[in-house]
Structures are given as C-alpha cells and as structure tokens.
C-alpha cells in the first residue's frame, strides 16, 4: 500500500491524530504528512473543516455586520485553533 492510502487507512479506526502523530506512525517527516494532506485535499479525499466565521451571536457588538465575531473570540482566534481535516465519506 502506498503512503497516502496508509494514512487514510489509519484514520479508519475513528481516532483523530495530529500531524506529528501521523508522521511517527507512518515513519516519515511532518512535512511529508503536510504535503500529503495538501494533495489529498486537492483531490477531494479529505476536507478541511471550516468553522463558520460570523457565528450569529447577537450578544455582543463584534458580531454586527456578520464579519466574524470579535466579541465571542479574540481577534486572531482562528489561527490559534489550528486546522482540522476530515475524511470525505465514500473513500
């Protein structure tokens, strides 16, 4: 089995993994995992999870205008939450 298929097969057990963990389990570098993620995303085998930006909270002034809620989370919160990808079903 080739590497990217091994990666997808690993995730079938239902456990989430960080990039570093995948690198350790597949005996490769984190950068190798990252390029695999990029490629798998491009061909539609995995999907980046995008959390809605303006989260519709009307409880604070930051939400007005629907440009993302500054009041519910600090301004650069999204980059501090890291990134997540899920396997697209049917693969």
């Amino acid at each position: 089995m080739i590497n990217m298929q091994k990666l997808l097969a690993l995730l079938k057990d239902g456990h989430s993994r960080t990039v570093e963990m995948l690198a350790a389990e597949l005996h490769t570098s984190a950068d190798d995992i990252r390029r695999q993620i990029e490629y798998l995303e491009q061909i539609g085998a995995i999907k980046r999870i995008a959390f809605p930006k303006g989260n519709g909270c009307s409880g604070c002034t930051g939400c007005e205008g629907g440009t993302g809620c500054k009041g519910c989370m600090p301004a650069n919160a999204e980059s501090n939450m890291g990134e997540m990808w899920e396997v697209v079903s049917g693969n």
Binding site: L8, L10, L11, K12, D13, G14, H15, S16, R17, T18, V19, L22, R34, I37, I46, I49, P74, A75, N76, S79, N80, M81, G82, E83, M84, W85, E86, V87, S89
Partner: peptide, 20 residues
C-alpha cells in the same frame, strides 16, 4: 463507522497581551 480527523495543532506561543 467514522474516520478520525487530522489535526494541525498551532505552536504554543506567548499571548499577544495588547490584543488580548
């Protein structure tokens, strides 16, 4: 059957005090 996710955790860094 569900598949696990892949996560890229952000590096730890000091909070930007001003913005915070």
């Amino acid at each position: 059957d569900k598949c696990g996710m892949i996560m890229e955790l952000p590096p730890y860094h000091k909070p930007k005090w001003g913005a915070l």
